[in-house]
Structures are given as structure tokens and as C-alpha cells.
Design a protein around this nucleic acid. Structure first.
Length: 415
RNA sequence: GGAGGAGUGGCAGAGCGGUCAAUUGCACCUGACUGUAAAUCAGGCGACUUCGGUCUACGGUGGUUCAAAUCCAUCCUCCUCCA
């Protein structure tokens, strides 16, 4: 299927389109001139993670195609908590924390992908707290509450799941979808925003806004969702053993970010290249065609390009160099975490593990050593009481310790 | 407000006075095989340890007992039915 608008064509060939409330009409609108679209983001952490990247990329392309992207921060809704597919209630947050998170997200995450400013196609960041905070309960119920039926709200997957699991769903959280629907209306009225995008799990919430605008303002707004990324065994993307894959370099180093992409499943490579790099489709098709061991080449490109998008070209190059040194030459690269220790007195291998945060406890370190997973300068060491001293320092003036094959750290002597 | 039921490790879910740091599945970690992949196989999976043990844990708090995740009381939370 081809579209008339550049935006939809781009999204389509890159695998971003899952559901749309009215594709033809949206296609037409997008050709009529500059439009604005938004995606809502959570402000519960001080960084976004790769789970948000699909949305960010959609806004990226939206802007590249000559439109105005709006990033809506859920400052107000963060006070409530999205019940979608969560088993437990989210903890509530105070204003100061939320505000702090928002600034962080804007300056470290969005900035790499979107151009903010005052121009017609410059990105805009708004906080729904600005209008939600002042709502008067009775007025709101009278003006908008009448457009929502509980019957329908109960039929949403996000709610159904919660009820089926007999997990508590408070009225507070139940209201989340009403708030989110109202956001859309508010953005339409203030900025003429006609489109809300998101992951397919947000479909219900988005449609709420579309319906609300239709009923209250007799206008047609649009919903567009992207397929949720899952690995072949059905797991959600974006989590590692250690938690979320953050976009903020302070919370996850560019090297680790690079490694995340470098280690994705074979079968995901094509999808991810389309979605998270801006390489021309023709080039992606070539990379996708690689088989067997050669897929690694495609993964390197993916890792490099994705890291470049998020952290810039220099950081991507450093990460790549470190990866090559570490994995292909068995040496060590500059991006590995470095810890200064007093090597004159020596340090127990086990303690060095703890110190470098490669493991969480001494017991775990012992296990690692017993199971042959612990290495010093690439050599397995089986003695749990081994003491690292100056004699372990390599010609490059460091000691490399490894937990398993992928986690490495450098020890340097404290000066 | 009334009557029942339930709260166990990241999740699911056994145990129902000692042999329980707690069966099992999923998740996770390490090793082998590979390609920094997947699948498969082997081992591991509370903390500390002089590897003998020690400590903290089965919603909270008290209690019974030589001994409690298991019994009692009370509080909290959730579920179902009734008002």
C-alpha cells in the first residue's frame, strides 16, 4: 500500500503502522500543509528508555517530513499513574520530582532527535499538568464526563486485564484514560493538533481522545499506533537483566547502549534497522539479506547507527572501538568502566568484583569464580581468594576483570 | 455493616508445627556448542562466612510451643456474595 503523504509512506516502509483510525483522511490532511501531532510520555523517571524510542522516532520522521511534533509530558497524569497492563499501582510522585524529570528528559533524550523552538515546524514540549491541575471536578464531570460511559471504559483491555487478575484498580487510576482523552482535546484546541500516535497498547487511550473531540467539538482527530516490538518468544523489547535500557548517558553508558543493540536477536535486526536507524531503505535491505555469521555485520551497523542517533557520532565511534578491542582483540577499550583501587596493597578478586559493580554480592562473585566465569585479563581464575596486585597490571597499565563473556571493567591503580 | 476466602522469594504457585532458605514452572546468571545470536545441554539462583556454620526472610504486631511459613489473637490489604 502506498500513500500520498511523505510521512505515512516513511512510516509504512519502516514498519511503524499498526492501526489508524482513518488512514485515507489522515493522508489527505498531511498533504494539506503543516500539521501537528503528539505523543505522550511518562515523567516518572528522569530518563526515557528504548521502549519510548518508537514514539520518538515517529515524531522524528514527522518533523523531518515538515510537520510539527509535540512531546506531551505527563506531569499531571504522572500524579495518577497509567493502569495499562500494570499489575500494581504506581507510586504517586510529587511535583518537584516530576518537574526535575521532565527537564532531564528534554535535555538528554529528546534533544538528540527533535529540534525544539518557535518556528512553525519546531518541536514543542508541553506538560498536561498545566491544564489538568486547574480542572474543576464538577465542571469537568458536567462538560466531559457525560461523554464517557463506564460500560465502554470497562471494555478496554487495560482495564479488563486488571479486573481479571483481581488486581485492585482505583478510581484514581481508572480516570487515567479520561485524562488522556482530554489531553488530546486540549492540544487540538490550543495547537490545532490533529493526530496522536503511540504504541499499539495505547490504542484505547488514544481513541478515547478521538471520540471525545468528535462528541464535544464535532471535529475529526486521528489515531495512529505502531506495532509493539516483541522478540520472537513474545518478550517486550527494552529490558535487560539489569533493568531498562535508558537513553540518558548518565544512567546507561553509550557503550552499554551500543552493546544492547549489538546483542539483539538475529530475527529482529531488519525490523530494528528500519525502526531505529535512518539509513536508506535500500541499504537496510542489503543488510537484511545477510545470513549466518554475517548477520553480525548488520548488528554492528545497527548498534552504531542507533547509538549515533541517541548519543552522537563521537560516542558511537568510541563505543564501537571499545567493542572491537574488547571482543575481537581480547584487549580493552576506553569505554569500559574504570575503577581506581590501591593495587600496591592488592585487592581480593572477590572484592574487586563488588567494587566494579559487576556482581551484586560476594556470594555471587564466588559463584562466578567457581563456575569459570571470572577472568583477569582474559584468563579464568578459579581461586576465590586470589589477590589482585601490581603484578597483574598489563603493559597498558590496567587490570581487566570480567564477569562472564560480556561484562568487563578495568582496574587502575589509585594515584 | 454482615458472611465467607486469600495474602509465601522478580512473577506464577506448592507447603499448612520440626527433615523449610522453603517443591515446581517462568524469568535471570555462569559454563559448553556457536557468531558478542537463537535453540539445546550442564550447573547455579537470600546475605555473610575462617565453608564448620551464622544471620535475615513466608502481609504487620503480639502470643502459644523445646520448636511456627505452618497454631492463636489482633491490625492492615485484596477477592467473592449479601445489605
Amino acid at each position: 500500500m502506498t500513500y500520498k503523504s511523505e510521512f505515512l509512506n516513511t512510516l509504512n516502509e519502516r514498519g511503524f503502522i499498526h492501526q489508524c483510525s482513518n488512514l485515507d483522511e489522515l493522508d489527505k490532511k498531511l498533504r494539506e500543509g503543516v500539521q501537528s501531532a503528539y505523543i505522550g510520555f511518562d515523567a516518572t523517571a528522569k530518563s526515557l528508555h528504548v521502549g519510548n524510542l518508537t514514539g520518538i522516532m515517529m515524531l522524528y520522521w514527522f518533523q523531518q517530513c515538515g510537520h510539527k511534533p509535540i512531546t506531551l509530558m505527563g506531569g499531571g497524569t504522572s500524579k495518577i499513574g497509567d493502569p495499562s497492563f500494570k499489575d500494581e499501582q504506581r507510586k504517586l510522585m510529587d511535583d518537584a520530582t516530576i518537574e526535575d524529570n521532565m527537564q532531564n528528559i528534554r535535555n538528554t533524550c529528546f534533544k538528540q532527535f527533535l529540534n525544539y523552538g518557535d518556528g512553525p515546524t519546531d518541536a514543542l514540549m508541553v506538560n498536561n499538568n498545566d491544564w489538568l491541575d486547574d480542572l474543576k471536578y464538577l465542571d469537568f464531570l458536567r462538560d466531559y464526563g457525560r461523554y464517557f460511559t463506564v460500560n465502554r471504559m470497562l471494555s478496554f483491555d487495560s482495564v479488563k486485564q486488571r479486573l481479571e487478575r483481581e488486581s485492585p484498580l482505583s478510581l484514581l487510576e481508572f480516570n487515567y484514560m479520561v485524562m488522556q482523552g482530554y489531553d488530546f482535546l486540549e492540544l487540538y484546541r490550543n495547537y490545532g493538533t490533529i493526530l496522536q500516535m503511540g504504541g499499539s497498547d495505547q490504542w484505547g487511550n488514544i481513541i478515547n481522545g478521538v471520540d471525545l473531540a468528535h462528541k464535544s467539538d464535532q471535529t475529526q482527530l486521528f489515531a495512529l499506533t505502531a506495532p509493539l516490538l516483541t522478540t520472537p518468544d513474545g518478550k517486550k523489547m527494552g529490558k535487560t537483566e539489569n533493568g531498562a535500557v535508558w537513553l540518558n548517558a548518565e544512567m546507561l553508558s553509550p557503550y552499554d547502549y551500543y552493546q544492547y543493540w549489538r546483542n539483539v536477536d538475529d530475527v529482529m535486526v531488519g525490523t530494528l534497522l528500519r525502526r531505529f536507524t535512518i539509513l536508506p531503505i535500500s541499504e537496510i535491505e542489503k543488510l537484511e539479506a545477510l545470513e549466518g555469521q554475517e548477520i553480525n555485520e548488520a548488528k554492528k551497523v545497527l548498534a552504531f547507527e542507533a547509538t549515533k542517533m541517541c548519543h552522537g557520532e563521537d560516542a558511537a565511534k568510541n563505543a564501537e572501538t571499545t567493542a572491537i578491542k574488547t571482543f575481537e582483540e581480547g584487549a580493552a577499550g576506553g569505554d569500559l568502566p574504570v575503577f581506581e583501587v590501591n593495587l600496591n596493597d592488592g585487592i581480593l578478586f572477590i572484592d574487586a568484583f563488588i567494587e566494579s559493580q559487576l556482581v551484586g554480592s560476594k556470594g555471587e562473585a564466588r559463584r562466578m569464580i567457581q563456575q569459570n566465569g571470572a577472568k583477569i585479563n582474559g584468563e579464568s581464575v578459579n581461586d576465590p581468594n586470589y589477590k589482585i596486585t601490581i603484578s597483574d597490571i598489563t603493559a597498558e597499565d590496567y587490570v581487566k576483570i570480567s564477569a562472564g563473556k560480556k561484562k568487563h571493567a578495568l582496574l587502575k591503580r589509585a594515584s
